[in-house]
Simulated assay, not measured.
Amino acid sequence: MPRFMGFVRMEEGIAAPPQALMDAMDTYIGEQAGKGVFLDGGGLYGTEDAVNFVVRAGETSRVDGPYAESKEVVGGWSILQYDTLEEAVAGQEEFAELHAKYWPECHMVATLRQISDAPPEAADA
């Protein structure tokens, strides 16, 4: 059964979501967990304590948050399991529509990506 990762990207530092959205998400996620679709997930803290390791030209450097140049950050994630890609897309759209309905002033992007179960192939293979 294919697994997917959902991301929620939004502006950092905006007001907290309204309680109505949190209640609707609790209900929706509870229903999805009951069906075996929602496997794990949660919200993320802001980037004030984030740590990035940047690899460039064979060198690794550490960059600590917050990141003034960031306009959008990943604010939440989920691991989902559906029978088909079409069901996964429909589920992610339902999740996005909760935000449109209960937090219309929020600008967010709900992204869905399928999780690969195979190791990546080497470029020189």
Rank of each mutant, 00 (worst) to 15 (best):
A88D: 03
E69D: 11
T47V: 09
V73H: 05
V37K: 09
W77H: 11
E121F: 03
E72F: 15
V8G: 10
E121H: 03
I115V: 15
G34V: 04
S116K: 08
M1C: 00
E93L: 10
Q81F: 05
H107L: 06
M25H: 09
G30E: 02
V89C: 08
I79A: 09
A122K: 13
I115S: 07
G46Q: 12
E12R: 11
M25I: 12
P66Q: 13
E31I: 09
Q32D: 06
E121L: 05
K35F: 02
A57M: 05
A15R: 11
K35R: 12
M108T: 02
V51Y: 01
M1S: 01
A15E: 15
M10D: 04
L44V: 00
G41S: 08
A88C: 01
Q19C: 02
P2D: 06
M10P: 02
P120D: 14
Y67E: 07
E12F: 03
D49W: 02
E72M: 15
E12Y: 06
S78M: 13
D40P: 05
L85R: 10
E11A: 13
A96I: 00
P18F: 00
A20F: 04
V55R: 09
M25T: 04
F38K: 01
Y45S: 15
E93K: 11
Y82E: 05
G76P: 08
V109W: 08
M1T: 03
F4W: 15
G46K: 13
V74F: 15
L21C: 09
D83L: 07
V37Y: 07
Q92E: 01
W77M: 11
G36I: 04
W103I: 01
Q19I: 07
E105A: 14
Q32H: 00
V109Q: 13
Q81E: 14
G41Q: 02
R9S: 09
W103S: 04
A50C: 11
V37D: 01
Y82V: 01
G13A: 07
A15D: 15
R3N: 11
P18G: 00
A125R: 12
F38V: 02
M22E: 01
